[in-house]
Design a protein around this nucleic acid. Structure first.
Lengths: 346, 346
DNA sequence: TGTTTTAGTGCAAACGTTTGCTAAAAATCG
DNA sequence: CGATTTTTAGCAAACGTTTGCACTAAAACA
């Protein structure tokens, strides 16, 4: 083959002694073309090694069959967090079924990502977008809304919630389940380590945590509510928690990687999970199952989140359904070694 | 904005009272256009909210500024393996610098992936490709070679090695280092658990392992050389290893996730790492550092692998340099708790 | 002041498709 | 067998850019 000029629809047409339009219709298997002609043209296409130029097609059809994926800006540790790859796999899986391709943003900062999105959308390289996070002060979602391009967010949008398609877990419920589980085990002093407050998920989790404590008449201790923006501050947070007059006997970690980190820090301090402190986590990635001790984790079905997001956006693009549907993916707690009944004596 | 017709270069031209060619030249900041005209046109573009249609540009320029990324076919566990996301981040990082966008394959099986590649390449949606694996009986690489499209493989190509650009670790050396480390610690009975034999990396590792044993006059025990194609067979493999008359005192795991798995199985059997068996791994992902016990792992610099791959391919595309350069990314062993000196009494 | 150079723009043809409309050929019917 | 319908295929205009070439006005020169 080499780098030679590609064979076009015109070349095929000439060779097959038909018009370009005929070739085009053969490609789309139009019923207006007789089987005899189709066979003839297909044979020529085969012989000449013809392949369609998608850019040309996109230009006239105004449809790319491509969706853009917006990553959240990547700190070095979010790299290692299995959330994105698993969600991506879910997206891929459905997209492939529908013969859609995917492009992802490459920017590392919020502004760079925004420009990536602009370029994809304005450059007409995508038919729709999937935003894989939901956070406050985000510029991407309002922008997409303004553009009128189909999009879906993974997580619950913080603005215009009812105008935007989203797929999400019931994060309040997930946090409730987790907290409830600890209470069932007899824990009363329960700390929670949250992620960045800008993300919607953080607020919802906190809400669930609070509600369960209240309904169980357990006073809410603000000193037990901690926020870690990056992995490094986990150590500080644990230092603070352990310096309290009344120490927590159980902790909710924000995700499996953070929990792994928490456990690692506790180990350094010779505090043993679950003997001294119970630990519960979210996402139920494979590490939860393999860690030592194994980690109780709320399965958020990340793959499914991605899969449904892709389904939403592609159906929207294809069927142009006007109703902004949203889907909630169920969560399920996976009980493992890291959570054990509270024992009075430490 | 809404879904209304997009504003084109023609609209801008009309509004600004210039020719479309002038607008085009303003966009590319051509020196042939006076500053006065440039300002005028830019103002109109601004006012009308003009954005270029990249598909149209691609069609005439025959250059997409987009690179395609070929994933290896995804078993459910490779999903959770941090290799791909980290490599992707490395690729992204350089691509973004050069203002390239990226598209990734969505297929899950080998054939589906091959069709994705075909579609990207023949459809002229990419200027070049990055293949993120190297394995035998792979159809993608020969295909790309035949097409004459620029591409680079992460790993060492198994065919036409000298005609293909690649970025790789010295996997033989990496395995040597790891094995050597164990020998230094006094281990003689060293087992190795490898990945799929089809991948180049597996062979290289085995080679390194063998060479070091030989040069240390340690007889090679074929029963110590195991291959796990998926995570489930790790249990079987360990059963077999532990049933041997002479049991291994140290194991090389194929990557951190596999090692995590190995440790998990050993724990079930009440075999303690590193007390009973030392364990060394590859990739040095974040889990290695956080696991219990922490895991000795050979850092393969995955991010860098991706970064350099992107650099290679983009330079090739831009500069059309004919020499197929390849780069080797250094590895470095990170010693942690999982490898300890051999103690005679078990 | 007439002629040549230069700077700045415009015209129109590409790039490779799709698709509405029209025309020819084939099939059907009375 | 001629008239009518149906099938099949072609013409040409789009889609939104870029770019070689031609052209005009202004500037420089003689």
């Amino acid at each position: 083959m080499g780098v030679q000029m590609a064979v076009t629809i015109k070349d095929v047409a000439k060779q097959a002694n038909v018009a370009t339009s005929t070739v085009s219709r053969v490609i789309s298997d139009s019923p207006n073309i007789s089987d005899r002609t189709k066979r003839k043209v297909r044979k020529v296409m085969e012989e000449m090694g013809y392949h369609i130029n998608l850019n040309a097609r996109v230009l006239v059809q105004q449809s790319t069959q491509n969706i853009g994926i917006v990553m959240k800006d990547s700190t070095i540790e979010s790299l290692h967090d299995p959330f994105f790859p698993v969600a991506l796999q879910g997206i891929s899986s459905y997209a492939h079924k529908r013969d859609f391709s995917i492009s992802i943003t490459t920017g590392e900062t919020e502004e760079a990502i925004f420009r990536d999105v602009e370029k994809m959308v304005q450059g007409k390289r995508v038919d729709g977008m999937i935003v894989t996070y939901s956070k406050e002060n985000d510029k991407v979602v309002p922008y997409l809304l303004k553009c009128g391009i189909p999009f879906v967010v993974v997580g619950k949008p913080v603005v215009h919630t009812d105008e935007i398609m989203f797929v999400n877990n019931d994060n309040v419920q997930a946090a409730k389940d987790a907290t409830e589980h600890l209470i069932q085990l007899g824990h009363q002093e329960i700390a929670i380590i949250l992620g960045d407050r800008e993300f919607e998920i953080t607020d919802s989790r906190l809400k669930g945590y609070r509600e369960v404590l209240e309904s169980n008449n357990i006073p809410i201790n603000d000193a037990f509510i901690k926020q870690s923006t990056n992995m490094d501050c986990i150590k500080t947070i644990l230092d603070e928690l352990l310096a309290l007059p009344v120490q927590p006997t159980a902790i909710l970690g924000s995700d499996d990687l953070a929990s792994l980190h928490i456990m690692s820090v506790l180990r350094e301090k010779n505090i043993e999970v679950p003997r001294d402190i119970s630990l519960i986590s979210f996402n139920n990635t494979i590490v939860a199952e393999l860690m030592n001790p194994t980690l109780t984790s709320v399965d958020t079905n990340i793959f499914q989140l991605g899969y449904e997001a892709a389904r939403c956006i592609i159906e929207e693009i294809k069927e142009r359904s006007t109703h902004t549907k949203s889907v909630i993916i169920p969560t399920k707690i996976r009980k493992r070694e890291s959570t054990q009944p509270y024992k009075k004596v430490e």
